[in-house]
Write a protein that binds this DNA or RNA. Structure first.
Lengths: 113, 113
DNA sequence: ATAGTAAATCGCAATATCACGATGATATGA
DNA sequence: TCATATCATCGTGATATTGCGATTTACTAT
């Protein structure tokens, strides 16, 4: 990407951007939704569910794990993945305060009609 | 990227991913916040505010405009940008229902301890 | 007209992302 | 032990993103 100039921005801005990046791919959205809906924490049934290669799913899971959104625990030969709900509440909070900042915007139709 | 396989996913999943992508860069977060906080709709004062080149800002603004998050109206030689608050309420709704889906998750600590 | 300012666009270089086959590590069951 | 199954990681090709200088377009003021 030609080096995103993270130094120009605040930590909060970079953090939110990183979280958004994690959600910036339909496969990751789908993985998260699948984990949210499945009773048991699911491993790579995701491969057959989503129609992507095992290596690809694994890579997406790693990104989600790196941000703490998903955890995995070894269960014999396989790995059980699940959402870290505590972390997700945090994340939701981040987004929420961002959105609030916008809705409290004083751009009251004063411009751009 | 090697062609993201959008066809495998639902429209809702792709849409949310696209919105997230728009927020997946600190410069765009900063632009949005600046627009939210400024009284008048601001043009590329953003260049001096953010410390990025004019071409770069213009490109980020275009991405935001393409998703309808930001509008610009020509004002003589310059352009006034502002947030489309109606659109933003929509966007917030998208994210909110995604987060609700997660918090209603039945992953009640049954796994991954 | 001419010069100056504001912004969009083009084209490039650097880097990041996505998808996947292949390989390797580990664990299970015969 | 040996075959099989589940994952993670590496390496690679294809594509996308960032950032910017240079150019172009449009308007303003002199």
């Amino acid at each position: 990407m030609g080096k995103s100039k993270t130094l120009l921005f605040t930590t909060a801005q970079n953090d939110l951007a990183d979280l958004a990046k994690a959600l910036a791919h339909p496969a990751r959205i789908a993985i998260i939704q699948y984990l949210a809906n499945s009773q048991s924490c699911i491993n790579v049934t995701l491969v057959t569910e989503l129609g992507l290669a095992q290596a690809t799913i694994s890579q997406h899971l790693r990104e989600l794990k790196e941000l703490g959104l998903v955890r995995g625990s070894i269960e014999g030969a396989s790995v059980n993945y699940c959402l870290d709900l505590t972390r997700w509440r945090e994340v939701q909070q981040h987004f929420q305060s961002f959105f609030e900042q916008i809705s409290e915007s004083n751009t009251n139709g004063l411009c751009c009609n």
